[in-house]
Design a protein around this nucleic acid. Structure first.
Length: 593
RNA sequence: GGUUCCGUAGCUCAGUUGGAUAGAGCAGCAGCCUUCUAAGCUGCGGGUCGGGCGUUCGAACCGCCCCGGAAUCACCA
């Protein structure tokens, strides 16, 4: 039941009855701010023209009408033109019983829509780093939220498995690797390949230096260095399907995939569709033909194909090289088209860093100009860089924070902290591992997901990530404490589920019920805005309110069984919502910690 | 120069379509564990919401102009 709508409808009825106002848009209902008494507030300023009375008189009149005519509303007060309405306590009691009985509380009704979320999309020449973590966590969470909102969701990963950068690693391995493998070196496959990517650059830079010393300009040197020429030759061989090159490519990519699988598992992300660029990079050429035929694109004398977007404030953009080979944009046009056709998508969301804002702007525009209206259903979920205190991460300068290292470090820190606090004293080794894992990952994931994706965020490895305050562990801890109380209730043989409701509620209990009732709307808003941070902020707020309640009121020691059992049910519902919400962020919550 | 985005407390960040006295956490200070887990709770200090003009009964939020910062404008992906 949508409580806010109930109030809004009642208020609309009031102004219609009192002032003959039929336009409901002037009726604004919002939650009453904490410092005032009441549950919902009607702002009366927009209604003054119709009422032809002062703000306070208008508010009092509407308040009087509402209390007389709306059974749910118990009382009201007026402060400076704000009409604060309080619902009857038994109304909240009923709402609570309703949500406690609903196993799918917060889940939206099926929309019948299919949404694809493309995220992760790594290159196969180096391991994942902190930036990829933000991408993966965001993509996974947004997909889960959209699923919870009633959509059919396809998580897609488009692996960038071909190109000059892949050849660089391959070439360096061939020249300097002496047959090294993940098995022989004990290195994780993606790290091993990454090592040779760095190795390539080292030699390449050395060659550039030498060529420059021999009198070439930097530009010339970069073009003429033997390493880069060889890498380019290797790419040509790959495209010609030269058996030796192709085998090496398959082997090294295989190593990387094994490594990624481990990282994905530790991050807890998964995919429904895997795409490989080696299989999609030729797509899109027919769309280029189509664009030419429609006169949307044009061909230059050298044979290359372009679109002129200067009228839209952008530039001229290349869509096909003079030699007929495709570029990034060509492929993306093709894959988008293919996906909408094949999967019958209603929406396609790309979780890609903000350095590609321009690219997606162009992509949508080009598709639109080709006459594909589903272009509007493409959304680029753009996220900002993760910066270190020294500034941006640079692979070459070795200032990247490796994903595997970070995960391991977080879990280790969580383990140490748990030990220091004596939280693991009565645990088996397996339980301790589980807790350290949940807490460490919870801290990391919450830290990243609580900030607005658009914003560049700062990560300071030295200060590490907090475990106190507005953090994942804080929320997990709230859950663990509740579960502990409920375990104790079960041990004491208390059957609290079906005890009749108590006759009265504490203000704090009403506040908790009120907050719990906002959960479904929060999930809906998070889905509409692709914003996991809304879920995070909501759960934090809920946990904070609960912690105050837990501190001030005892549950099991309460003598009145009806009150005690209600408190158990209320606590259980808080734990349930925490668990549901955190799951949408990809965060697990422990039974104890 | 064009495009997109950001600027809120010492630091890291919230602030849902414009609504009441702008909020958290961290850091600092002062308190609370013979009572269900102190990874918790309570209190204190801390702000010209980058600046200006405008729209409005009302602006951190909307519009315009500046200032500062980021990304991008590759026949790389």
């Amino acid at each position: 039941m949508n409580i806010e709508k109930l109030i809004a409808d009642a208020a609309a009825g009031a102004v219609k009855e009192l002032y003959g106002l039929t336009d409901a848009s002037a009726v604004q209902i919002q939650k009453t701010r904490k410092e005032f008494e009441g549950d919902f507030t009607l702002v009366v300023f927009p209604l003054l023209k119709a009422s032809r009375k002062s703000p306070d008189a208008t508010a009092a009149e509407i308040g009087g009408w509402l209390t007389a005519n709306t059974p749910e509303i118990g009382s009201f007060n007026v402060i400076k033109g704000f009409l604060n309405l309080s619902l009857k306590p038994e109304f909240w009691g009923e709402r609570f019983a309703e949500m406690a009985a609903d196993a799918d509380f917060g889940r939206g009704a099926p929309t019948g829509k299919t949404v694809m979320v493309e995220y992760s999309s790594p290159n196969t020449n180096k391991p994942l780093h902190l930036g990829h973590i933000r991408n993966n966590l965001l993509g996974y969470s947004v997909a889960e939220i959209l699923k919870e909102c009633g959509n059919t969701v396809l998580k897609a990963n488009l692996v960038n498995d071909r190109g000059i950068h892949i050849c660089k690693s391959m070439l360096a391995w061939k020249k300097f690797g002496y047959g090294e493998t993940p098995e022989s070196s004990g290195m994780k496959g993606d790290h091993l390949v990454g090592k040779y990517y760095v190795e390539f650059d080292k030699h390449y830079q050395q060659e550039i230096k030498e060529l420059m010393a021999a009198g070439q300009s930097e530009e010339e040197a970069k073009k003429n260095a033997p390493m880069i020429l060889e890498a380019q030759e290797m790419l040509r061989k790959w495209e010609a399907k030269d058996p030796e090159t192709y085998t090496l490519w398959e082997t090294m990519n295989g190593w990387v995939y094994d490594g990624f699988a481990v990282t994905y598992k530790s991050l807890g992300v998964d995919f429904d569709r895997m795409y490989y660029e080696s299989q999609t990079y030729l797509l899109g050429k027919s769309l280029v033909e189509e664009g030419l035929a429609k006169g949307v694109f044009y061909r230059r004398p050298d044979g290359s194909v372009w679109i002129d977007l200067t009228a839209d404030g952008l530039d001229e953009k290349l869509l096909l090289r003079a030699d007929g080979t495709s570029v990034y944009m060509t492929q993306d046009l093709g894959t988008a088209y293919r996906r909408f056709e094949d999967e019958n998508l209603d929406a396609l969301i790309y979780v890609v860093g903000n350095e590609q804002n321009y690219h997606f702007q162009v992509l949508k525009l080009v598709l639109k100009k080709l006459g594909y209206d589903w272009s509007d259903a493409i959304y680029h979920l753009s996220y900002g860089m993760v910066e270190l205190p020294e500034g941006r991460m640079k692979s070459r300068e070795g200032t990247v924070v490796d994903a595997d290292d970070l995960v391991e470090g977080m879990v280790e820190t969580a383990r140490e902290m748990s030990q220091e606090l004596g939280k693991l004293d009565n645990c088996t080794a397996a339980e301790a591992d589980t807790i350290a894992n949940m807490v460490g990952m919870g801290a990391l994931k919450y830290f990243i997901l609580k900030v607005d994706p658009k914003k560049t965020m700062l990560f300071d490895p030295r200060e590490s990530i907090d475990f106190n305050g507005n953090t994942g562990p804080f929320i997990q801890y709230t859950h663990a404490r509740i579960r502990s109380v409920i375990r104790k209730a079960a041990e004491a043989g208390i059957d609290y589920a079906s005890t009749p409701a108590p006759g009265a509620y504490l203000p704090e209990e009403i506040e908790l019920i009120k907050t719990l009732s906002e959960y479904p709307a929060t999930i809906a808003a998070a889905g509409e805005n692709y914003a996991p941070s809304l879920v995070g902020a909501y759960i934090y707020e809920l946990a904070k309110i609960y912690n105050g309640y837990y501190h001030d009121h005892s549950i099991l020691r309460e003598e009145d069984a009806a009150v005690r059992d209600f408190r158990l049910r209320l606590s259980g519902q808080v734990a349930s919502v925490i668990k549901k919400g955190m799951r949408l962020l990809g965060i697990e919550v422990p039974e104890r910690m």
